[in-house]
């Protein structure tokens, strides 16, 4: 066995792992607080990616005249600023979604929430396709990815971009932990996640806290989109496949565990690269298959995943 190659593959996989981890985190934050899986998370993230794109090169509508949008000049921002802008805009969209579409349905059956998130997925997807077209757009890399921009570790190349992405994710995570453990809003958010009725009784504005939760989740989604837009190219459906991996990561780690989302993302990223490399039958196209099977098995055998809370059902 070629250990250098194995190490190289692991290093390459870690980049995707960061993407899956952050999108999985977005899913987990919402699921933990509301028990809803936001199927539109990927599209919301892609939309933020396009916002960053607009910040960088202008609206670039697909239509020739572009209507009024053609008149808007580009805002030439530097890449970090554009990403930050996209994260903030994405958070606003997330908060608005909660306020307008989710909050009125608080007592509605689960099916209604599924319907709304599916409707949102369709709407955002076709809006993006309408505005920017379905063709892929070039998006700059957040961190240097060129040849030679890497560390040599035992002959394998660990790229700066992989390290940069993980460093970014860790900084954001530390901020998140600080927010959750050290601030009043974080305390309220944790209370709401545990029990909504009781939180309401002690005077926590549950609706507003959930709105912050949605904003936070959308922020992680936006980050995931901006990280991945360079390697998969920006197009309206780019996050759909990523969403499958992120769902798998979240399920594997336990749908209500942020730690699980991180670990799950790493496992899914590794298996996506390593399994096709060592099992020739699977190949590149089927690389999603083992992940999907693993997700099914986890849901069947251990719905709580690695770190999730076990739910006890009355029989």
């Amino acid at each position: 066995m070629d250990y250098v190659l194995l190490l190289q593959r692991i290093f390459d996989a870690l980049f995707n792992s960061a993407i899956y981890s952050s999108l999985a985190l977005a899913l987990v934050i919402i699921f933990r607080a509301t028990g809803l899986l936001n199927f539109a998370q990927g599209e919301m993230a892609t939309f933020s990616g396009y916002i960053a794109f607009v910040f960088l090169v202008g609206p670039q509508p697909r239509l020739k005249g572009g209507g009024l949008a053609g008149l808007i000049p580009g805002v030439p921002l530097s890449v970090p600023l554009a990403v930050m802008g996209a994260v903030v805009a994405g958070m606003a969209v997330g908060a608005a979604t909660e306020k307008v579409l989710i909050r009125p349905l608080r007592n509605a059956p689960e099916l209604s929430l599924v319907n709304v998130s599916i409707g949102l997925l369709l709407v955002i997807n076709s809006l993006m396709a309408q505005w920017w077209g379905t063709g892929p757009r070039v998006f700059p890399a957040l961190f240097p990815t060129g040849a030679g921009q890497n560390f040599d570790i035992f002959g394998a190349r660990l790229r700066y971009s992989t390290i940069g992405v993980w460093a970014l994710l860790f900084v954001v995570l530390i901020c998140l932990i600080f927010l959750l453990k050290r601030t009043r809003i974080g305390l309220a958010f944790r209370a709401v996640s545990i029990n909504q009725t009781n939180s309401e009784l002690v005077g926590i504005p549950v609706g507003r806290i959930l709105m912050y939760g949605w904003a936070l989740a959308a922020g992680f989604g936006a980050l995931a989109a901006c990280i991945s837009a360079n390697s998969v190219l920006l197009e309206p459906s780019m996050m759909l496949r990523v969403l499958v991996y992120a769902f798998a990561a979240a399920t594997l780690g336990g749908l209500d565990s942020p730690k699980g989302a991180l670990v799950g993302g790493v496992i899914v990223g590794l298996s996506q690269t390593l399994i096709p490399a060592y099992v020739p039958f699977i190949g590149f196209e089927l690389s999603v298959l083992p992940v999907l099977i693993a997700m099914t098995v986890v849901l069947l055998v251990r719905p709580a995943g690695l770190y999730g809370t076990k739910r006890i059902e009355r029989v």
Binding site: L105, N115, V116, G119, L122, V123, L127, Q130
Partner: peptide, 17 residues
Amino acid sequence: LLDEQAFVFGVGLIALT
């Protein structure tokens, strides 16, 4: 946009809910 099935049905799905 109204010509896009996905858009019309997404909106319809949300509105009807």
